[in-house]
Amino acid sequence: MAILVNENTKILVQGITGSFGGRHAQLSLDYGTQLVAGVTPGKGGQKFADKVPIFDTVAEAVEVTGATVSAIFVPPPFAGDAILEAVDAGCELVVAITEGIPVMDMMRVRAAMEGKKSRLIGPNCPGIVTPGLGKDSHGGCRIGIAPGYIHKRGKVGVVSRSGTLTYEAVWQLTNLGLGQSTCVGIGGDPINGTTHLDVLKMFNDDPETEAIIMIGEIGGSNEEIAAAWAKENCKKPMAAFIAGSSAPPGRRMGHAGAIVSGGKGTAAAKIEALRDAGIEVAKNPSDMGQALVRAMG
């Protein structure tokens, strides 16, 4: 089962001929992911890695290949347009990897997506991995930029705002023998497509997922909202970690959304909300895997 994507999901990559997009498209192919199309305006008719057809538009790519998910590696000035193109083409899921999209663009994109069936993950995110059953989790669905080999197919759902911190958590789980159902990076921008809560609900409903680890950071109130919901509704053991307890207020810590302003969005408030919901909070980032072990009792 897993959530959002599985080994049969057909994906396309917008921006496949760029160096960043191309590199990660190749890594997804190597992982065994069903990458069926690429899109770069003006390069339709060419092939990526001698086998994946490239189209001028997402609409054509979807029509010809049946892709249902688009991964976006388009540079920031054009990324908002690329997301809307994927939505217009009927992609069920749009995963925007691009970092540095103007907030005003994301505001308009989100408003334009109201009432559409497409779900957006990101932007400024590492993507999604549903690990496969092969060696080093080969054969799964890798969308985005996460290293495939650190994963292991299993029963833990992972949701996080960050990239490398997620890899750290996944690696700790894998080394403890705890595989993952799906790992979702929702991204570090202030306005994004999918929240911790959205993913939490999906994990809660997924029969394959038996435990959940949620990784958050300072800024906004996404984690508090998810914790309040989990307190009443989550049937599965949960662990969490919040990055940024040592961050000074008023400064953006790398991620555009990671800022404590006006006393709001502090790590302390988030940790308190999580604990109040009965979620096992990792004492430090080295303790994320063990925290889940404790939560699972």
């Binding site: 911190l165 570090g188 970690f241 990671a258």
Partner: peptide, 9 residues
Amino acid sequence: AGLAMATMD
């Protein structure tokens, strides 16, 4: 960025 914050923590 997330891992950098976590390292400070």
